[in-house]
Design a binder for these strands. Structure first.
Lengths: 354, 354
DNA sequence: TTGTACGCGTTATCAA
DNA sequence: TTGATAACGCGTACAA
């Protein structure tokens, strides 16, 4: 006694019956199995089409023990950089026939553990962790190491690391980016260079230390002046700029573009001109850095590529069983108005820094 | 003959055996079924813990015919506005125990269909479409209407709509926002107001028409001057600003903040001062609008709330079987420097528009 | 309160 | 080339 009002879902068996074949044959015909006669294949496909058959991937996954689903753990979907990474990851995965489950962990280790557990429960074929703060060894107990790609790892253990990176790691060459920024500033006449960081993440320390080291390498003596904004900053741009005003450096390198742009606003609020009174450098290369006023000099990181590469590497690991060797992506310093040499006319700069 | 090297996954049966109960009892103990003795419950939980049991949600979903998974179809994860929506959606869903599969369709109807099919195959309990361009009636053939929430629908059919919105729709009150922007501009002395749009989306036409109507309502005669940028714009900020330079309006209302900020840059490039030579208004209220130079007057839409509400409404629809009535969220005009009345000093403005 | 046995929808094995 | 049947891992109706 079937209920006419409740549209029962069309199953493989229904297709098989309509095409006068067994479920096994129908399954093979639809999955493109080689050893099926042309006649039956077309008739099965036709039946599936007419009945609007939609396969149940859960049942399939249960049977074949693969889900063609990837887990992506990231900090925050609303952040411009992570949005880029997520976008690239989703695109690459989609093009290769994989779905993505996203979980944002908001810099909370408890949430990161929860996310990895969710992925395990869903039987994702692999997991990528972006900017994770979990101890790598712990992460590997919650996700199988050979199916785990780590992008921009941000745990303390990355700090003192020397020598080759372990397989499955993808990150940008932040040190080189910072070095390029420092050299650029010095070349443009900025000597007293300070660092403005945010939060307690390892990446912040990495960049700060890279600034200090680069300055030393360039023969600048004395300790690096370093300022800090809280991670969950409620500070306004004005308060952030106030960090510096006691004794203005020639230039500041900021942890990221977001911070640098907020800083630009705060400096303007306080009547400090950029770059004439102080130079400002950002990090990330978000789109707004290119159209701020003044336009922001920044170390551009390939965020979208990071996501695409992560997905590609993960899928490769899944399909070959081999975790790809670590990848370090180059970054690029893009010089714009915010570090223009002092005394150069505005009009000329507009031409020089398109 | 079990293989010691291959770590076989722990199953419910393993937990049951370790706790000396049947699978049924183990299942009930772990799912918090009432009629289970305290003793057995604790011993089952202990066994599950020790064995590091991870339930297979695929098998569970197959059995209970619910996946606790939601499908979110959006335009582009890397876009600031959609990132906010996605973030709110993921948060709300996560807090209520639902996972999210994201698919970006990049304004391509073919991709939108593909995404809805993916959701169907995965048996998502419900689907939310953000800024979809698919014909609503077609969408309902690809996703069950009573489990479908539509956020900011962007199909032509929304254009001529009058009367109440259908259930399951969530959108912002763009018309009121535009009206507020127009009134604000007029109050600040801008009379010759133009519109700068992007692409061919319905929402673009909605905002343009709202500008025209508001102007008429305010007694401004003559047709609205309207400019347009392609959707896949490769235009630089300079080219975008060039649209206007022949005959500069007093002010422009832009389709969104991104466009407005690019416009600000282009105007600066051409030596046109904002707001002294021309006022600029954006739409969306992305974070950068608050710190641009000049800071951007904009119609702030609650993007994060949009995502949270969508998830909440969808889950409610799933759990009660009732599609919630349409929701129209209010927007808010935030006046900043880019529409400061001409002739008002900068310092004063900084105080007046924090 | 607990156990037995079946079924969710698909693919894979084996035999024909 | 095709068909019958057994799994995949879990929840639950029914029986005890």
């Amino acid at each position: 006694m079937s209920d006419e009002t409740e549209a029962r879902r069309v199953l493989l068996g229904d297709v098989a019956r309509a095409a006068n074949v067994s479920k096994a044959t129908a399954s093979r015909a639809l999955s493109g199995d080689g050893r099926i006669s042309f006649r039956t294949r077309t008739s099965v496909i036709k039946a599936a089409d007419e009945l609007r058959y939609v396969p149940n991937v859960l049942a399939r996954s249960l049977r074949v023990r693969r889900t063609r689903t990837l887990g992506l753990l990231l900090v925050d979907l609303s952040d411009p950089v992570h949005g880029q990474v997520a976008s690239g990851f989703e695109q690459e995965a989609g093009e290769r026939g994989y779905r993505v489950i996203f979980v944002a962990a908001l810099n909370d280790p408890v949430e990161e553990r929860r996310a990895l557990k969710i992925f395990a429960e869903h039987g994702t074929d692999g997991v990528t962790v972006v900017s994770g703060i979990l101890d790598p060894s712990e992460a590997q107990t919650l996700a199988p190491r050979e199916r785990l790609i780590v992008v921009q790892p941000d745990h303390r253990s990355m700090l003192r690391r020397r020598g080759p990176l372990p397989a499955g790691v993808i990150q940008t060459d932040d040190e080189s980016g910072v070095e390029a920024a420092v050299k650029h500033l010095l070349a443009n006449g900025f000597r007293d260079i300070a660092y403005v960081g945010r939060g307690t993440r390892a990446s912040n320390a990495v960049r700060r230390d890279a600034v200090a080291r680069s300055l030393k390498d360039e023969g600048i003596r004395g300790p690096l002046r370093s300022f800090k904004v809280a991670d969950d900053a409620q500070q306004t741009s004005d308060q952030i700029a106030a960090l510096l005003t006691e004794d203005l450096p020639d230039a500041v390198i900021c942890y990221d573009d977001m911070l640098a742009l907020v800083m630009l606003d705060g400096l303007r609020e306080r009547g400090i001109r950029v770059p004439d009174d102080m130079g400002v450098v950002g990090f990330d290369g978000i789109p707004f850095a290119a159209i701020s006023n003044p336009r922001l000099t920044t170390v551009v990181t390939p965020s979208n590529d990071l996501g695409r590469l992560a997905a590609a590497s993960l899928i490769s690991a899944i399909e070959t069983g081999e975790l790809p060797p670590a990848i370090v992506l180059p970054v690029e310093l893009v010089a714009r108005e915010s570090t223009r040499p002092r005394g150069v006319a505005v009009a000329a700069a507009a031409v020089a820094h398109p």
